[in-house]
Amino acid sequence: MRLPHTEVARRSPRRLGLGLAITGVVLSLGGCGLAGAQGKLSDGYLPEGATEGADRVRSLWLGSWIAALAVGGLVWGLTIWCMVAYKRKATDPPLPVQLKYNVPMEILYTIVPIFMIGVLFYYTDRDERALTDTATPPDVVVNVVGKQWSWDFNYVTGNAHEAGTQAQLTGKPGVEATLPTLYIPVNKRVEFQLTANDVIHSFWVPAFLQKLDMIPGRVNTFQVVPTREGTYAGKCAELCGAYHSRMLFNLKVVSQADYDKHIADLKAAGNEGLLGPANLRTPIIPQDKNLLSTEGN
């Protein structure tokens, strides 16, 4: 049965209003969830950074969004203005008058985007170079080895190691305590030397606001200076097989005394020395002769 035109017209605004209300609720709930999980709006919903380099990442992130919103607002504003100012009138011909190209305008909207991309590239490259710079001698060197589907930690400076096993996610409280746990001292420059045993993995601690791939046959490095003590979640950020989602670890930023105690505990448990590359599918070419040792397992 077809509704009268007046009935359809009466219901349309109500349906539109209901749709807008539902959309608003969904966006509000989504925003609340995002804010609670990631951070505040003023931080661009990023996690609270735990390293010196986090502020640099946050500034680049916020600056990029501000520029994008400004450009988007300008484009939408001009679009709406054109829609209103040049709205077709009943007296207008059925087809618009065909105009020739406006060469200055063509040049303008070709050069401006190139300029915008150039500025974004400059600041991104500047910050990326700073974040990946390893010229400063580190206080602590840790070789993190990714494997299907867990992590091994070689404390190169402390001459100790810890081998991880795959996480058993039972859904019950306390699973976090069973994950491989990496210890680093607060306010010390820590260099991570990243290697992989089998396939490509990615070392990611969200609180660092940066991550780096782990590629078989390569040693990728980056440095951080952790500024806040605490326990932070870590994970693999590269799809690496069936149990990729279980490739989790903890990272503890502790005092120097607690870090030294952990190294001593590892040695007392028989984990003195470093895990060697004997089980690697692809030979590793260390960039540092102290990176890996054949001592230990």
Rank of each mutant, 00 (worst) to 15 (best):
V119L: 12
A67V: 14
T79I: 07
V71H: 03
L95N: 10
G30C: 09
I114H: 03
V75D: 02
G73Y: 03
M116L: 14
S12R: 15
I117Y: 07
P137E: 07
V103G: 00
S42Y: 01
P47A: 12
P137I: 01
A135M: 01
Y45H: 09
S59H: 05
S59A: 14
R14C: 02
T51N: 03
K89C: 09
D133E: 03
A70N: 03
N102D: 15
R129H: 07
R56H: 02
I80W: 13
Y45W: 14
I80F: 13
R15G: 07
L74I: 15
L16D: 11
R15P: 00
C82R: 15
M83W: 12
V141W: 01
V119F: 04
G39T: 02
V71W: 06
V144M: 03
I66C: 06
L99K: 11
V84A: 11
G33Q: 06
P93F: 12
G49Y: 01
T132H: 07
E52P: 01
A35C: 02
L46M: 15
R58M: 04
P94Q: 10
L46V: 06
N143S: 13
T136W: 00
A50L: 05
A54C: 05
Y109S: 06
M116H: 03
V8F: 05
V75H: 08
K89L: 13
D125Q: 11
M105W: 08
I66L: 14
W81K: 15
G73W: 03
T79H: 10
L108N: 02
L95Q: 11
P96H: 12
D43W: 06
V75K: 03
W61M: 03
D43K: 02
L34Q: 10
L27N: 08
T124P: 00
G44H: 04
I66Y: 13
M116P: 00
K89F: 05
A70P: 00
D92S: 13
R10A: 15
P96C: 09
E52L: 11
S12W: 05
P93N: 11
V97E: 15
L62W: 08
K87R: 14
T132W: 10
G17I: 05
L20K: 11
G36I: 01
V84C: 07
G24H: 05
S28K: 00
D127Y: 04
V145T: 11
G49W: 01
G31A: 10
V25L: 14
W65K: 09
S12F: 14
A70F: 08
V97H: 13
D43C: 02
M116F: 10
V71A: 13
R10E: 08
Y109R: 11
K89D: 13
C32N: 05
W65Q: 12
I107L: 14
V25S: 04
Y101K: 15
V26T: 12
L131R: 06
G33I: 10
S42Q: 04
E106H: 08
I111H: 09
F115H: 07
G72V: 03
P93H: 11
G24F: 08
Y45I: 04
L108W: 10
W76H: 09
P113V: 08
A90G: 14
N102P: 06
A70Q: 01
T110Y: 03
L18R: 10
L41R: 12
L46I: 07
F115W: 11
A90V: 06
A85R: 13
V140F: 00
I107W: 04
T23S: 10
L74Y: 15
R14M: 06
Y122F: 12
